[in-house]
Write a protein that binds this DNA or RNA. Structure first.
Ligand code: SF4
Ligand code: SF4
Lengths: 149, 149
DNA sequence: CACAAATGACACCTTTAGGTATTATTAACC
DNA sequence: GGTTAATAATACCTAAAGGTGTCATTTGTG
């Protein structure tokens, strides 16, 4: 009943990057600020690039930048990449072929909650999440290296 | 964002057993009716016994029975056994020491959803779930062996 | 008591998410 | 063009959840 580590990491990364969303952040810099194992961070950044959430710049003074304005990236977009959701299969009991015409007691309750979650995920954009996490992450943000400075 | 297999299995088991909650069900019988790998089912039944949800009867014509009336067993009770929830740590980003006085945008929304989920889990009893899952599971229920017949 | 039919305990195997290591490729800058 | 600082690709390792196998223990019954 919660998100996996990869999702958490991705939220951290993207949340941090959206503080100044027109800057390029290298994996090195992100590693210094977010507490994510370096190699895994690298892997994850590549994945986020390959899935269109980040644009990557290779070569010297390269790094990553949000591929779209933060207000156009929803939590849902992120979670679709990091969590593999089975959109069809939502029975709380794991039944794949429930044959009831009349649903069981929990079905409706559960469905409502699912809807609430999805709604939240689709309605919340990175823009709202500029300032997340412990203060220390944010306060160090001005140490960032940028492409243009 | 969903329950693990062990939780699903447990819900199936207990849901099925609550159809006739004063009967003793052997692992063998449960295995014939619910589609759960036999050994793992056995393991899980032991765990549910050890955690007070089931009472086990050893020896010939033994098996398992609900330890309490189904209306006194909530989904929450079950999930506490099968899912290991960290009750303290609920930050969607996985931060353990968020230092904000002013919470981030998602914090409140997420908290509300968590509450809705917990409320549902605590309000829903096995009693409401007597008839769950595909029809075939239920229709075979009269083949049960019991202690007293 | 001996046998059969059930659960209990415990060790082991398998799959997958999380994490590392290595080598190749790209691009700015001298 | 060569050096350096960055990402890309790929393969491998580790820990935890899911799943098996074996043997011991309990209890009803002839
Ligand atoms: S305010 Fe945001 S970052 Fe801080 S604990 Fe709440 S959800 Fe996590
Ligand atoms: S009615 Fe109940 S058992 Fe059937 S799919 Fe819905 S939640 Fe699952």
């Amino acid at each position: 009943m919660n998100f996996n580590k990869t999702t958490e990491y991705s939220l951290r990364i993207l949340g941090f990057m959206s503080i100044e969303e027109d800057k390029i952040y290298s994996a090195e810099v992100l590693n210094e600020n977010l507490e994510i194992p370096f190699r895994y961070l690298r892997k994850q950044l590549t994945k986020l690039s390959n899935n269109g959430l980040l644009t990557s710049y290779r070569g010297k003074s390269g790094g990553y930048m949000l591929s779209k304005p933060s207000k156009e990236i929803t939590l849902w977009d992120i979670i679709e990449v990091t969590e593999d959701i089975d959109h069809t299969h939502q029975c709380i009991f794991g039944f794949e072929d429930c044959a009831f015409g009349q649903r069981c007691a929990i079905h409706h309750k559960w469905e409502k909650i699912q809807e609430a979650i999805n709604e939240m995920l689709k309605d919340t954009t990175l823009e709202e999440l500029k300032r997340i996490g412990p203060q220390r992450f944010i306060s160090q943000h001005n140490l960032m290296l940028t492409k243009n400075v």
